[in-house]
């Protein structure tokens, strides 16, 4: 079995700050990490590898620095890594991104058929969750998003059974391989990299493809040109007009503070009185 895992290098969004005057993102010093959702997908692929001796290839599209994301994936146990990098890919929206990735995956499967494509449910920088569906649609592969569990892979019949998070419950779905699976967060814990894998990852000779090497002839389908969406404005959220009214009492005792708060709140916002309806049963 051959599993392809699509990953993305992203800025650690928890550490992004906005310049208070210019309203632009201050990128300096923000560490680049592997999109955490993609690591959940990678671990799921590696678990299948443990069980079935599958081959795991990681693929990323990004600037040359994205190489470090691939080496990270190799250190966890991925077998092969391919970097798709070209200035022509810059400024791609999700439609143009899935075009380029689908082209690369076609080329990969010329070498060795791909049974499963795994990726995270979304990235933490774009948050779109659109590239997985895009890849599946372009390659004519079955799509299973928000997968919380892989129940069974039946290679002889070429089938996979998974649990998929849906509104109000979980769908148990069976489909035919090859399939694209986007993996829900929190379903596994990433393993630790082993020493030998870390050494191998550091020495590994990455495959690097530019546009031509990936077999992409039509430049109108990639990068900014291939993107139907354009960003017209970027801005910081408007702050709420007023700051909080800080509750103060002479004693600063919790009971007094709370009593003052309740008195104010119920006077200024009478509907809150009716909203309160305590549960009879106490939790243990």
């Amino acid at each position: 079995m051959h599993i392809l895992v699509c990953i993305k290098q992203v800025p650690d969004s928890a550490q992004i700050r906005v310049h208070p005057v210019t309203n632009t993102i201050m990128r300096q010093g923000v560490p680049a990490i592997v999109n955490p959702y993609d690591l959940v997908a990678l671990e799921e692929a590696l678990r299948l590898k443990d069980r079935t001796s599958a081959r795991v290839t990681v693929l990323t599209m990004g600037p040359p620095q994205a190489e470090s994301a691939l080496r990270k994936a190799l250190s966890f146990g991925a077998d092969e890594a391919i970097l798709l990098t070209d200035r022509a890919f810059a400024g791609a929206d999700t439609l143009a991104t899935s075009y380029a990735l689908a082209a690369a995956i076609r080329k990969i499967r010329d070498d060795m058929p791909v049974d499963l494509v795994f990726t995270g449910k979304q990235t933490i920088d774009g948050d779109t969750a659109q590239v997985g569906p895009g890849i599946a649609t372009r390659l004519g592969m079955q799509l299973l998003t928000y997968v919380s569990r892989i129940d069974r892979v039946d290679l002889e019949r070429g089938e996979i059974t998974v649990q998929r998070r849906a509104e109000g419950g979980v769908q148990v779905l069976r489909t035919r391989l090859p399939a694209v699976i986007t993996v829900l967060e929190g379903i596994n814990e990433m393993r630790f990299a082993t020493m030998p894998d870390m050494f191998r990852a550091a020495r590994y000779g990455l495959t690097v493809w530019d546009r031509e090497a990936a077999g992409i002839g039509d430049v109108t389908k990639i990068g900014l040109k291939g993107s139907p969406t354009v960003v017209s404005r970027v801005f910081a959220p408007t702050p709420r007009a007023q700051k909080a009214e800080i509750i103060q009492t002479q004693s600063e005792q919790p009971d007094d503070l709370v009593a003052t708060l309740l008195a104010k709140m119920f006077t200024k916002h009478p509907p809150l009185r009716a909203a309160i309806c305590p549960r009879a049963v106490q939790r243990t």
């Binding site: 439609l95 779109t128 969750a129 659109q130 649609t137 998003t145 849906a166 969406t229 017209s232």
Partner: peptide, 30 residues
């Protein structure tokens, strides 16, 4: 932008080759 809507929208937009903006919090006419 539910698990159904995002799954479906991504596939439909790719099939139609059009733009899709995910998980919006405001809509207006330019």
């Amino acid at each position: 932008a539910t698990t159904m809507g995002r799954d479906l929208a991504g596939s439909v937009a790719t099939t139609l080759q059009t733009g899709l903006t995910a998980d919006c919090t405001g809509l207006a006419i330019d």
